[in-house]
Structure formats: C-alpha cells, structure tokens
C-alpha cells in the first residue's frame, strides 16, 4: 500500500511550533432554550500555523461550533455554551471573559463578504481606530501589512480610498480577511468563506488562507466543499448530528477514514 507521507512544505519555523495548540475545546456543547441540544461533547485542538477544516452535512453544528470559539453565540438570546474553551492557557467560556479583547485575537470571516460601507482603507483602519490606535503612520502601516498578508495589496494599493463595494466578490472577501488580520489575531475563524464566490475567486481565497497559515495563524474553516477541505487543510474534523465523528490529519481522514460514516460522507454515499 502506498502511503502519502509528505507534509505540506511550509516554513520550518512554523513547523517547529506547530504541535502546541493555541486553542482547544473540552466537552464543548451548545443548547438553545436549555433543552434543544445543537452540539455536544466536542474535543478539538487547533495549533498555530495549521488549517483545520470542519466538514459535514448542513445543520450538524459546524457553524454553531465555530461561533462558540469567539463567543459569537453569546449574541444570540437563549443560547448556552457548555464546556471549556481554552485559549492562550485559560478557559474563555466564563461570564467575565472580555469579549472585545478576545475577538481581536480570534478573528472571524463570514459566508457573505461583508465589508463595511466605507473606503477600502477605512474598512481596515476602522476597528484599530476604535481600539485606540490614532497615529496616521501606524494606521497606514497596518493597512499595508494586512492587505499584503491577505494577498490583496497589489490589486488595491492604488485605490485605497475607493469604496469597498467597488471590489469584486473575491476581493471583498479578501478585504474582510485583511480587516481581521489588522487586529493581529492568533486564530482566524472562517464560516464558508467561499460559498458565495466563483471558482477563480475561491482559489484566490484558498491561496490567502495558505498564506496566513504560513504566518503562524491558526485557521479554522467551515466548508461544504469536501474538495476544498482536501486542498487547504492540515486537519479535518467531520461533524454529524452535533458531534465530531472523526478528527485527524487531512491525508489520513481522506485516504483512510476510521469511521464508516466519514467514509460514506466523503464518498457521497451519505444517508
């Protein structure tokens, strides 16, 4: 039997610190109205510089889980998050966690590209300014580095003061990624970031994902596109009916899934 052994060839420095998880969940579950269980017993770890795909059929808790990680679920009334979410060495699923600080280091990108109705520059500087950075030079620096990291700089550097809505769908999504990167996050959560985009734009987003993972950021992405999960992720977790059925290296999950249900889903023999 031939083995697929070679790892993704990213920077060696990133490789070295890869094993230490930046974010981990212990027995995380989500309930609505105390009784409706949307998710239960999720134990996953996310390392720096690693891309993790969350795959599975619709309504199986992938997005719900993703929204736990930056406590976005707290914005939904009657939604309870159980279990421990350990970020940076401490449990963040506590009532006195500073949401606003947390969400700066755990960024989020959404399904539909949602830049603010502002100029490209303002889209990026907006949040840093709200968080107290006023120096013009510093802000310009942030704009450039974030756009470079999101692989958008070359395309927009001459029209930073144009509306973000003058950009194409793929560019808007990369602008949203850049906006998140401006906060210097350690983790970036992505909720089906390509499902509203055409194939070319999708590939450009995937390149961007590879690039930011290369910067040492842990990327967690929900996707309905199994091929996409195969293309971009180091680890894959398969969600079914609110539980994680299988989690492991993407190569292993895709070439030799341990669970029959994973096999059925990946090969399209689901249900």
């Amino acid at each position: 039997m031939m083995q697929i052994t070679e790892r993704d060839t990213r920077g060696a420095a990133v490789e070295a610190e890869m094993r230490e998880p930046v974010l981990a969940t212990h027995d995380v579950g989500v309930r609505y109205d105390e009784t409706k269980v949307a998710l239960s017993g999720v134990n996953l770890e996310f390392a720096a510089g690693e891309v993790t795909s969350l795959i599975g059929p619709s309504g199986c808790g992938k997005s719900t889980f993703l929204r736990c990680l930056n406590l976005m679920n707290r914005e939904i009334p009657h939604c309870h998050i159980d279990g421990e979410i350990v970020y940076d060495g401490h449990n963040i699923n506590t009532p006195d966690e500073n949401l606003y600080e947390l969400r700066q280091s755990i960024g989020m990108v959404f399904q539909i590209p949602n830049p603010f109705r502002k100029s490209i520059r303002d889209n990026i500087t907006f949040a840093p300014r709200c968080h107290g950075i006023k120096d013009k030079k510093r802000l310009d620096e942030i704009v450039e580095t974030s756009l470079v990291k999101a692989a958008l700089w070359d395309e927009v550097k001459d029209k930073l003061d144009k509306s973000a809505y003058a950009l194409s769908g793929g560019q808007r999504q990369r602008l949203c990624i850049a906006r998140t990167l401006a906060m210097n996050p350690k983790v970036v959560l992505m909720d089906e970031p390509c499902s509203a985009l055409d194939p070319i734009a999708t590939f450009s987003i995937e390149d961007t994902i590879g690039q930011i993972a290369g910067e040492g950021i842990s990327v967690i992405i929900v996707t309905h596109n199994i091929e996409q999960a195969a293309r971009i992720s180091d680890k894959t977790a398969y969600f079914l009916l609110g539980e994680v059925v299988e989690w492991g290296d993407t190569d292993a999950v895709f070439s030799d899934p341990k669970d029959k249900r994973t096999q059925d889903y990946l090969t399209g023999r689901f249900g």
């Binding site: 083995q3 697929i4 070679e6 195969a230 293309r231 993407t250 895709f254």
Partner: peptide, 10 residues
C-alpha cells in the same frame, strides 16, 4: 506519494 497527494488534495 506526491502524485497521490496531488490527486487527493488538488
């Protein structure tokens, strides 16, 4: 293994 990897991933 590289070929298989490309076939699987890409």
């Amino acid at each position: 293994s590289l070929c298989l990897r490309i076939l699987l991933r890409q």
